[in-house]
């Protein structure tokens, strides 16, 4: 087991190292999410409620995540590194888990900017929103990484990923917005947790089929 987790750690470290060297994903995500919030500011009528802006926060998070996910397998597609990893890794789900950890880290970094920016521009962010974002990140990274691997193997690539991803992420948006705006966030948070559990297991079990024949 420590061997498996060691593989995951090595692969996740590689993701972070590549980002540290090239800095082409996280800065783009941060800039994108702040830009999106500013655009939303101008798309809301003056008398729109804070609740409406919380809904937009979730749109911003999902689209920022798509940015991270489109980049997720770029380094591996180049030079067919993914094939090398597929041959070298005993249990290939470790490749998925390592990538999920990397995507999660990028999401959290972008949100560390996005949530304060949202609080500054729109409305205070409650603990329930923070908890919902944390739970949503897991589901988004788990499902998104698997779909990113699929999209990377197709011809349409960047174009295909949002199409595959958005219908699957609707429940996450429902859970997130519900937790943010409803007086009783508990069941929405529980729903997000359920989503994470179900889809993480499904993605973990099926990754092998997506990267190998």
């Amino acid at each position: 087991m420590s061997g498996y987790l060691g593989d995951v750690a090595a692969l996740a470290r590689t993701s972070l190292l590549l980002e540290l060297r090239q800095r082409d994903t996280v800065p783009a995500m941060v800039l994108f999410v702040v830009s999106a919030l500013v655009v939303f500011r101008f798309s809301l009528p003056a008398d729109a409620s804070d609740l409406a802006s919380l809904g937009l926060l979730w749109i911003a998070i999902v689209f920022t995540a798509i940015l991270a996910l489109t980049r997720a397998f770029v380094a591996e597609r180049d030079q067919r590194v993914l094939d090398g990893l597929v041959l070298a890794t005993g249990d290939r789900s470790a490749i998925w888990l390592g990538k999920v950890a990397g995507v999660l880290a990028f999401l959290v970094l972008a949100e560390l900017v996005a949530l304060p920016a949202f609080a500054l521009f729109f409305a205070a962010v409650g603990w329930e929103t923070v908890a919902a974002v944390a739970l949503a990140n897991v589901g988004i990274a788990a499902v998104g990484t698997l779909l990113a691997a699929m999209a990377a193997a197709s011809r349409a690539r960047e174009l295909l990923l949002p199409l595959l991803f958005l219908p699957l992420v609707i429940p996450v948006v429902v859970g997130g917005v519900g937790a943010s705006v409803e007086p009783d966030p508990g069941r929405y948070l529980a729903f997000l947790g359920l989503y994470d559990l179900i889809f993480a297991i499904l993605a973990w079990a099926s990754f092998d089929y997506v990267v190998a024949e």
Partner: peptide, 30 residues
């Protein structure tokens, strides 16, 4: 699978890592 060595047209290594870092990663996975 881990007893097979495969040399492809592409080197199958990360361009933005050094030779040492690439081999370290593969060595650990293998």
């Amino acid at each position: 699978r881990d007893e097979v060595g495969y040399l492809a047209h592409e080197p199958l290594v990360y361009r933005e890592l050094s030779a040492l870092e690439n081999l370290e990663l593969y060595g650990r996975l293998y």
